[in-house]
Design a binder for these strands. Structure first.
Ligand SMILES: [Mn+2]
Ligand SMILES: [Mn+2]
Ligand SMILES: [Zn+2]
Ligand SMILES: [Zn+2]
Lengths: 136, 136
DNA sequence: TTTCATACTTGTAACGATTACAAAATTGTA
DNA sequence: TACAATTTTGTAATCGTTACAAGTATGAAA
């Protein structure tokens, strides 16, 4: 059981109830939700929650390195709890975003052609195993 | 000198004046412009050009494989003439998007963890050579 | 405990990129 | 030339996101 309150404090973020709930959601579901998905999910137990708070919170988390911000295709920003670099695969049929466990040469914190790399993202697009199987 | 009219026909796209001009722009500048950048640039010589036409044309080009659609960070779709897979680096200071010539193992058209890969994108973010030099 | 400044949350309005849509213009073909 | 099909245009609508101002909670100092 992770103490999200502590985790936030360690990152210099005062742990409000809203912030804890949003971080909890990201950890528990461990998917790649948009701000709106999180908002809709927390609406039930927090009826007064504001969408603005969700947006602000996610942006603040990402800036402090608590979570990762993804911008993969289709003009929707997504967030995830897993901050270790990994490959993303988006299925063009079912729109599910898969984590690919295959390792790769990460250029993060390296210098390439004179440029200093701070982030490294690999995005794949195609048809997932499930959709291929059900196509037959 | 490329015959853009022919090029479009070969891809099954009837070559209207607007389409030829947009393709010409992408080829001549060879950067990673947004639809709006192209629209603004062509406004002078084509005063009646509609922004909708630019959006529609770029989308059609990308679908037919004439150009590539990029969705790298910051929620802005960009397009480019160069359809060969390569790495992109965006500088967080000057916002320029660089092409990285370094080669990499491309997973396009391969199968990974059961998924069929149709597109492969690598996006880097950091501080470019120019901005680092001028920081001193 | 009260006071007060600060930080956080909320709700609404505004924004910006993109898309939908219908009318006007153009095109290719008979 | 006639005409149907396609393309372009301009405007309105949409959607994700952000700005902003007012309300609320928090936590330290008195
Ligand atoms: Mn992931
Ligand atoms: Mn490029
Ligand atoms: Zn799928
Ligand atoms: Zn730069």
């Amino acid at each position: 059981m992770i103490d999200f309150k502590e985790l936030l404090k360690e990152h210099g973020i005062p742990p409000s109830l809203q912030r804890i709930k949003i971080l909890e959601y990201l950890h528990d579901f461990n998917t790649h939700p948009t701000a709106d998905v999180i908002y809709q999910a927390l609406m039930n137990e927090m009826p007064t929650l504001s969408k603005t708070t969700v947006y602000n919170t996610l942006k603040a988390f990402a800036e402090k390195g608590v979570i990762v911000e993804l911008s993969l295709f289709e003009n929707e920003v997504r967030y995830e709890y897993n901050t270790t670099p990994h490959i993303h695969f988006k299925c063009i049929k079912c729109n599910i975003i898969y984590d690919i466990s295959e390792s790769f040469e990460c250029l993060k914190n390296k210098e390439i052609e004179g440029h200093k790399v701070l982030e490294h993202h690999i995005y794949l697009k195609g048809i997932c195993k499930n959709c291929r199987d059900s196509e037959e």
